[in-house]
């Protein structure tokens, strides 16, 4: 293995990193007079729960053409998965960070917090790829950890596979976050409809999406009301309050769901949930931010190609 190539290959990451840093500095410069404060959304207690929609609603790139955004998110996802190249993945991670935080002006803390959510799954998933178990130590292993039952071994292959997996997964997640943190759910459903996705599936997605929010909102209301009546002061009481809330939740949500349905039926709903959407034309600026990075990622992919890796 020629490690010196990897050092040279790392240079490919400089341009996306430079774009990210420049974007960050520009953002800090523009907002230098504003006091830093956390916005009211996110996972705080006792507040509304439409947070993901809220991020998209506040995104400065919300005015971009949704088809372009969704198509681009999927394209980056595919590039990331097919190329299976950590340099491309890291480039995508940096670039989508730039798009979401610098162009979309989402709070960097919020974004990093959101990226942390899949971390637990990835740690759990990669343990069994990273570690091998054997009775005898491996001569070519990076680490041989002796335990009472045998050896826990990390070999260069497993280490490489894990790094590859993490890069790929984070790249893919970043690409999807770029899409979902800037595109309202109704626009995503609209694009799916235009893509001739079956009506039934879109309707189900939409209904489930609404109902999740009804559930969360109902739960919030009941929790707040229990909390205001000192329902969470001791552990025992908290358990009791949580239990009562949970048992009521379904009933109350069903009732609210029915009211929603009545209100929809009253407005001639006939199984096709459609809304009028603002027309968002594709501009040259949007195309620039799509085409130039894509071309760059393909270039990186070609330049750092190391043969087909069938391990992962």
């Amino acid at each position: 293995m020629h490690y010196q190539y990897h050092v040279i290959y790392l240079l490919w990451l400089l341009p996306p990193l430079a774009v990210l840093i420049a974007g960050g500095i520009r953002k800090a410069w523009i907002h230098r007079h504003e006091e830093h404060h956390h916005h009211g959304f996110g996972h705080k207690h006792g507040e509304g729960t439409l947070s993901i929609d809220m991020y998209a609603y506040h995104s400065k790139i919300g005015s971009w053409n949704p088809k372009l955004k969704i198509g681009y998110g999927l394209l980056l996802l595919l590039i990331c998965l097919i190329s299976n190249d950590p340099y491309v993945s890291f480039g995508i991670i940096f670039y989508t960070f730039f798009v979401t935080v610098c162009l979309g002006e989402l709070d960097a803390d919020h974004y990093i917090g959101l990226l942390g959510i899949p971390l637990a799954f990835m740690i759990a998933g990669s343990i069994f790829i990273l570690f091998n178990f054997s009775h005898t130590p491996f001569s070519n292993a990076l680490v041989n950890i002796p335990t009472h039952w045998g050896y826990v071994i990390i070999t260069p292959q497993t280490a490489k596979a894990t790094v590859n997996l993490w890069c790929k997964a984070f790249g893919a997640i970043s690409a999807m976050y770029m899409m979902s943190l800037s595109t309202m759910s109704n626009e995503i459903f609209g694009v799916l409809r235009d893509a001739h996705c079956p009506k039934l599936i879109i309707e189900l997605m939409n209904m489930m999406y609404r109902f999740i929010f009804i559930l969360m909102d109902t739960q919030h209301r009941m929790k707040n009301s229990a909390e205001s009546r000192l329902g969470y002061t001791t552990f025992k009481r908290a358990i009791y309050s949580f239990g009562s809330t949970a048992s009521n939740l379904f009933l109350v949500s069903m009732k609210r769901g029915t009211q929603f349905y009545d209100a929809m039926e009253a407005r001639c709903y006939n199984g096709d949930l459609r809304f009028f959407e603002e027309k968002k034309p594709v501009t040259k600026q949007q195309l620039f931010w799509v085409i130039v990075p894509t071309a760059y990622f393909v270039l990186v992919w070609v330049m750092t190609f190391q043969g087909v890796n069938i391990n992962v």
Binding site: S185, Y269, N270, R274, F275, F276, E278
Partner: peptide, 14 residues
């Protein structure tokens, strides 16, 4: 709906 315009358009579209 998630925008005011979308909300008001629901009836006429139906």
């Amino acid at each position: 709906a998630s925008t005011v315009m979308g909300e008001v358009s629901f009836g006429p579209i139906n």
